[in-house]
Amino acid sequence: MPDADAYAAARTRLDALVKPVGALGRLEDLAAWLSAAHGVVPPRPLDDVRVVIFAGDHGVRNVSAYPREVTAAMVRVFLAGKSGVNVLARQVGARVRVLDIAVDDDLDGVPEAVRAHKIRRGSGAIDTADALAPGEAERAYAAGRAVADEEVDAGADLVIPGDMGIGNTTVAAALVAACLDLPAEEVVGTGTGIDPAGRAHKVDVVTAALTRSAGRIADPFSLLTTLGSACAAATAGFLVQAAARGVPVLLDGVFSGAAALVAHRIEPAAARWWLAGHRSAEPSHSLALDALGLTPVLDLGLRLGEGSGAVQAVPTLRAARAVLAEMGLLADLG
């Protein structure tokens, strides 16, 4: 668990810095949170930041402005360092890793390490069938935990779960709706930029998925099997294991938010290690963050995914840490 004594000590020091009490607002909250996570005041530097993108396809059709072949193509873009998150991560010195969890492609020529945790080729169409076969949610969850261990063992100070997959926002909307007992109309957004007719179809898909799954999603793994995806299960495992290892997590957008809701059902205490990096433009993301009690660091109207929003919050966390580490004390004024 985060260190309550370190949190209290950070708050005491923040109030004693050369400024009015509370004058640095949210930066003070973040500084105290990081102190609790690290168990020391000031917190350790966030030098080694790692983004892990869980890539996979979904069987739902006509819910995106792009064809599903884009997922496989984007894996190669990530590896080439040319994606949005690659560019943004370089600005803060973060490392980006992409994993094929359920891409509907053999990805010939892609390094084997990218495919080492693959569960299946594509997840099922949740409006007409289960997303996963029996046991696959548990396997994907275990894979996500193993990936978290790999990143922590390699020295990660902060981890960010990213996502890539055509249909991701549809799955995320269905998971949020199921977790919070909400109708599809309240959780479905425009995703990749679909028009009103496309959104109406997406609402119908999520409604059909919720109807089909009624009475079959009592536990988290049944929920992931019926309405989720291999990527959602892997992300949930990643979030839980990073917390178990005592490493702070900066959540990204709607997909990681939905996975966090499920992960919270599996291990409620894990949420103490999570921060919301930003607020996505997707309506289900705000609903998920509210349910988790998380206030986003940034709110820029982003909806790219990939971990791209969360990496932009890293400088804010570093600034919060610097406040505790470098500001003088009122008591030291001459």
Rank of each mutant, 00 (worst) to 15 (best):
Gly124Ser: 12
Ala8Tyr: 00
Leu294Glu: 00
Ala242Ile: 10
Ala23Asp: 05
Val205Tyr: 07
Gly334Tyr: 02
Asp181Ile: 13
Ala310Asp: 10
Ala37Glu: 12
Glu150Lys: 06
Gln241Lys: 07
Ala16Cys: 09
Arg90Ile: 01
Thr12Ser: 15
Thr169Leu: 06
Arg115Tyr: 00
Gly237Arg: 08
Ala148Ser: 05
Val206Lys: 08
Arg265Tyr: 05
Lys19Arg: 09
Ile53Ala: 05
Leu302Pro: 00
Ile53Pro: 01
Leu175Gln: 02
Ser35Trp: 00
Val114Phe: 11
Ala23Trp: 02
Ala156Leu: 08
Ala89His: 05
Leu261Gly: 03
Asp181Arg: 15
Ile119Gln: 04
Asp47Leu: 04
Ala133Ser: 15
Arg11Glu: 10
Asp5Gly: 14
Asp29Glu: 15
Asp105Thr: 06
Gly193Asp: 11
Pro43Ile: 05
Gly193Cys: 13
Pro296Lys: 00
Leu333Asp: 10
Asp299Gln: 10
Gly124Gln: 12
Leu107Phe: 05
Ala310Gly: 07
Arg120Phe: 10
Pro43Lys: 07
Ala325Pro: 06
Asp5Ser: 15
Arg212Tyr: 10
Pro183Val: 01
Asp127Ala: 14
Arg121Ala: 15
Met164Asn: 10
Thr295Met: 08
Pro268Trp: 06
Glu150Val: 02
Ala310Ser: 12
Leu298Glu: 03
Gly193Trp: 04
Gly253Arg: 08
Ala146Ile: 01
Ser35Tyr: 11
Ala148Arg: 01
Leu175Asn: 02
Glu306Met: 06
Lys19His: 02
Asn168His: 11
Ala65Ile: 14
Glu326Pro: 01
Val297Arg: 00
Pro268Arg: 06
Ala80Gln: 13
Pro67Asn: 12
Asp181Tyr: 12
Ala331Trp: 01
Glu326Phe: 07
Ala177Phe: 09
Leu302Gly: 07
Leu158Ile: 07
Ser123Pro: 08
Gly25Leu: 09
Val87Ser: 04
Arg139Val: 03
Leu330Thr: 08
Ala281Ser: 15
Leu261Asn: 01
Ala271Gly: 06
Ala214Cys: 12
Pro315Trp: 10
Thr211Lys: 14
Leu275Ile: 09
Ala72Tyr: 07
Ala125Glu: 14
Leu298Ile: 04
Arg95Asn: 02
Arg199His: 09
Ala271Asn: 13
Thr71Ile: 05
Ile166Arg: 05
Ala31Ser: 11
His285Phe: 13
Pro315Glu: 01
Ile217Ser: 06
Pro196Leu: 14
Arg272Leu: 03
Glu112Gly: 07
Val77Cys: 11
Ala270Arg: 04
